[in-house]
Design a protein around this nucleic acid. Structure first.
Lengths: 329, 329
DNA sequence: CTGTTAGCGCCTTCAG
DNA sequence: CTGAAGGCGCTAACAG
C-alpha cells in the first residue's frame, strides 16, 4: 500500500506537507501543492481514513440507529426512506455511516451500547423511531456522552438535537381540510401509540380542531397497526362521518374495513407513503419527506459535532391527495 | 479515553501482555490474564477498533453494496431483507458493515470506487442486485483486488464467491405445480430483465417445463415492473390459461390487470414478498429467504477473507401459497 | 511557507 | 510466559 511517505519522497517534500495539501490547509504554496498532487496521481495514492481518524482523534463516523419493522410489518417504507436520506447526506459530508438496527441493541445494557459505539469510534448518532419506553436509549441520551440527533422526538440537551415536522399543525391542517371538504361532524380518530411522541402532538392538533369546528370526536389508539385500525373502524365507523388516522398504514386498514362494511366514509391519513398506491384508493394525507428529514438530521449532527449546542429543528410538510396513478394505472 | 496503557499500569503488566489477553493469545498465564481482566473491568476499558485495525493491518470492515429502488419502486422489500440479514450476520461475526447504495457509486469510475473502498479500509464486499450492464462493478470483480461475494449472479473467481438459490429449478417447480393444479396449457410467461442473471436461469426452467408438459408459451419481458406486467397481461392474458411471472411484484401487476379485465386466470409468482398481502389475493410463489441469503453471503465473505477460494453456493427455497391472513385478516 | 518531531492506540516480533 | 521496542499511516504543534 502506497502511503503518505511515498508521496512525500516522490514529490520531494516532507510528510507533513503532503498531509497539509491533503487536508486543504491554507499555508501551502501553489507550486508545492502542484508537485504533491502530481505525485499523488502518479502513485495512485489513497489516504487511509482509519489512520487519519486515529491520529486526529476525530472519526467522522456516525451511526444511524433505526427501528425497522422488517419482520413484523413486512415493509417498512418509512424506515427505508430514512435510511436512504441519511446515507446520501452522510456521503455528502464525507461521514462514514454505519447502520444499526434497534433489534441488535435491544438486549444490551447502557454500558454495553456505550462500549460498542466507543469501540467503533463513533462520534455521533441519529436515532429514528425512538419511543418513550426505550429506557436504555434515554439513558444514552441523558448521559450526553455522544452527539445525538433524534428524529421525531422532542429531546434537546447540550449534546442532543431533534428534527421533525410540526405534527400538531400538520394533523390539524390535514384533518381540517378533509373534514371541511366532506362536511363531517362526527370524527373517529385513530391515534398512534399511547404516550408516543408524535402521537401526542397529533392528538393535540385534533383536539384544537374539534374545539374550533365544534365537532364530536372518538379517540382510539391503533398502535400504528393496520389490523388494529381495521378492527376499530369496524367497531366504530358506522356512526361516524369520517375516519382520521394518525398514519397511512392505519388509513389503509380503515379503508379495507369500510370496503368490507360496504359504506363510504372519507379517510384521512398521515405520512404520504407510496404503499397507498398498492391499495388502489384515494385519500388526503400529510406528506413528510422522510429522506429529507433524515438528511437534515445528518446535517444537524454534523454541526453538532462541531461543538454546537443541541437545538430543535422543525421542517415543513405538504398536504397531498394520494392517488399514485402511475403505479395503479 | 482509557487506553491499553492505563490497563497495563493498573494491572502491573506490560502493554503487550494486555494486548495478548485482549486477542486471546495462547501464551498467557491464567494468573496474569485474571489480573488484566480485572483491570479492564475496573477501568471500563474499551479497546479501540480503529487503532487495532491500523496496527494489525486487517480491518474487519466489509461493505454491503446494494441496489435499492427506494425512489422508483416505492418499497423495496427485497432490498430491505437483504440489508437486515447482512447486518445481523455481520454483527455476529464482529464485522463492521457499511451500507453503500448503488446510487452513490453510479457516477464513479472503477478507480474512484477502488479508492473509496481502499480509503475506508474495506476488505470485503457483498453485492446485491448486480446486473450485466454494471460495467464498473464487473471491472471491480475482475480486478480481484477485493474479496467479493455476489448475491444472485454466477460469478466466481479467486476472490469472488456467489450465493443464490437454484432459480432454474425453483421456477420449474413452482410453475409446474401451478400449471398442473389448474390444468393449464397456454402459458404467458412474464420474464424479468433481458440478459439478467436470474432472468435467464428462470427462463431456462420454463423452457424445460414447456417441453416436458408439451405446453405453449409466450415469453415477454416485464423488467420486474408491476406496471409493465399489468400491460402485458392486458395485451396477452385473454387467450392464455395462466400467467407465470418471474417476480411477485409483476404478479401483482398481472392480477390487477386480470381483475380489471374481469377474467380469472391463475397467477404464479416468484420471491415470496409480504407486499402481496396488501393486494389481498392469493397465488403460488417461490419463497426465497432473502435475509438468510445475505446472511449466508456475509458468512461466505468471512471465510473468503481467511484466504479461501471463491466458490458457488446454492441455497434452498420453499414453495408457498401466499395469503397473509394475519395482515389482510 | 516547509520540515522536524512526537504521538494516536494498538499489534507483533524478538529477547529475556 | 512476559516485556521492550518498533512500527501501522497519518496529524498537529512547533521550529525554522
Amino acid at each position: 500500500m502506497v502511503s503518505i511517505k511515498d508521496v512525500a519522497r516522490q514529490a520531494g517534500v516532507a510528510i507533513s506537507t503532503v498531509s497539509k495539501v491533503l487536508n486543504n490547509y491554507p499555508n501551502v504554496s501553489v507550486a508545492t501543492k502542484e508537485k504533491v498532487n502530481r505525485a499523488i496521481a502518479e502513485l495512485g495514492f489513497v489516504p487511509n481514513a482509519i489512520a487519519a481518524a486515529l491520529s486526529s482523534k476525530k472519526s467522522g463516523r456516525i451511526a444511524l440507529l433505526i427501528n425497522l419493522n422488517a419482520q413484523t410489518q413486512a415493509i417498512d417504507e418509512i424506515g427505508m426512506q430514512y435510511m436512504a436520506g441519511a446515507i446520501r447526506q452522510a456521503k455528502e459530508y464525507n461521514l462514514d455511516l454505519v447502520t444499526v438496527f434497534f433489534s441488535m441493541i435491544q438486549d444490551m445494557t447502557y454500558e454495553e451500547i456505550t462500549r460498542y459505539f466507543l469501540s467503533q469510534n463513533i462520534a455521533g448518532i441519529i436515532i429514528c423511531g425512538l419511543s418513550k419506553d426505550d429506557y436504555v436509549l434515554h439513558e444514552l441520551i441523558q448521559a450526553e456522552r455522544f452527539k445525538i440527533v433524534i428524529v421525531d422526538a422532542p429531546i434537546v440537551n447540550a449534546t442532543t438535537s431533534s428534527v421533525w415536522i410540526d405534527h400538531k399543525r400538520a394533523q390539524y391542517d390535514i384533518a381540517k381540510k378533509t373534514i371541511l371538504e366532506n362536511n363531517a361532524k362526527r370524527v373517529l380518530y385513530i391515534a398512534g401509540k399511547k404516550n408516543g411522541y408524535v402521537t401526542d402532538e397529533r392528538l393535540k392538533g385534533m383536539n384544537q380542531l374539534v374545539q374550533e369546528l365544534k365537532l364530536t370526536m372518538l379517540v382510539r389508539y391503533g398502535n400504528f397497526s393496520e389490523l388494529e385500525a381495521r378492527k376499530l373502524t369496524f367497531q366504530y365507523g358506522q356512526h361516524k362521518d369520517i375516519v382520521v388516522c394518525a398514519s397511512d398504514l392505519m388509513a389503509i386498514g380503515a379503508m379495507k374495513a369500510l370496503t368490507e362494511m360496504d359504506i363510504f366514509r372519507p379517510v384521512c391519513g398521515f405520512d404520504g407513503i407510496m404503499l397507498m398506491g398498492y391499495v388502489g384508493k384515494q385519500m388526503n394525507t400529510v406528506r413528510q419527506n422522510f429522506a429529507r428529514i433524515s438528511g437534515e438530521a445528518v446535517r444537524e449532527l454534523y454541526s453538532l459535532m462541531e461543538e454546537n449546542e443541541g437545538k430543535n429543528i422543525v421542517l415543513d410538510y405538504e398536504m397531498v391527495r394520494m392517488q399514485y396513478l402511475d403505479i395503479i394505472c
